Simulated assay, not measured.
Amino acid sequence: MRDLMGMMGKAKEMQAKMEAMQEEIASMEAEGQSGGGAVKVMLSGKFEMKKLDIDPSLFKEDDVEILEDLILAAHNDAKVKLEAEMQKKTQEMTAGLPIPPGMKLPF
């Protein structure tokens, strides 16, 4: 019975830590760049694009397709950075817990 109560306490503690981590992740931001900094994108921890900076030299009619590709590349760069930071924070929080391999957190 004591073990069950201990497990319940740890589960509540883990839930509180997860909620705090999710709030922290939501407030994170990452900047992605492409084209040598000609296109910059700022993403929130929820992968929402918050800011887009485009160097004015890219505004030429013939370069629209290139500009679109650069925006996508900058967005993906920021997303990769956020995902890496999320994984790092999750690993720090769950260090020492018996979590099955391949299980992704937060759910």
Rank of each mutant, 00 (worst) to 15 (best):
D63L: 12
M42C: 05
M5C: 07
T90R: 10
G6L: 11
K51V: 01
F59N: 05
V41Q: 01
L52F: 11
T94L: 14
K17T: 07
M7W: 12
A78L: 03
K104E: 14
M28C: 06
Q15H: 09
E85D: 10
Q15C: 05
D77M: 04
E29A: 02
A20N: 08
K104W: 13
A11L: 15
A26K: 07
L82W: 00
P101S: 08
M8I: 14
I99S: 08
E65K: 03
K81S: 04
E83N: 14
E92A: 12
P101W: 07
E23G: 05
L4W: 08
M8L: 15
I54D: 04
D77K: 05
L52K: 04
K40V: 00
K104F: 14
A16W: 03
L67F: 14
A11H: 13
M28N: 04
E61D: 12
K46F: 11
G9D: 10
I99H: 09
D55W: 05
A84R: 10
K50M: 06
M14H: 06
S57V: 10
D3Y: 11
A84D: 13
A78E: 00
E83W: 13
K60F: 09
A30Q: 00
K81T: 00
V39E: 02
Q22P: 01
L97I: 15
A16Q: 07
T94I: 11
M14Y: 11
K81M: 03
A74D: 00
L97A: 15
D53V: 07
A11N: 13
E61Q: 14
E31L: 03
D62E: 15
P56S: 06
K81I: 00
A16H: 03
L70F: 05
L52W: 10
P98W: 08
M5V: 12
Q87G: 09
P98M: 10
E68W: 00
A30V: 01
M14V: 10
M18T: 08
K46S: 14
K10M: 15
P56T: 04
I71C: 06
D55C: 08
M1T: 10
A73K: 01
E61F: 13
T90I: 12
G9H: 09
G102E: 12
E13N: 11
G9K: 13
M18Y: 09
L82R: 03
K89H: 08
E61H: 14
F47G: 10
D77T: 03
Q33R: 09
K60C: 07
P106V: 07
A74W: 01
L43E: 01
G96K: 08
G37H: 01
E13F: 10
E13Y: 09
P100S: 11
A30S: 07
K51T: 03
K17M: 13
G6S: 12
A11E: 15
M42A: 03
E85S: 06
E61L: 12
G32M: 00
Q22H: 06
K104R: 14
K12L: 13
T94W: 03
R2T: 09
V39P: 02
E19A: 13
P98D: 15
D63M: 09
I66K: 02
A84P: 04
K40P: 02
P56Y: 01
E83H: 14
D77E: 06
V80C: 05
D53A: 08
S44G: 08
A74M: 01
D77R: 04
H75T: 05
M21D: 04
L70A: 02
G37W: 02
N76I: 00
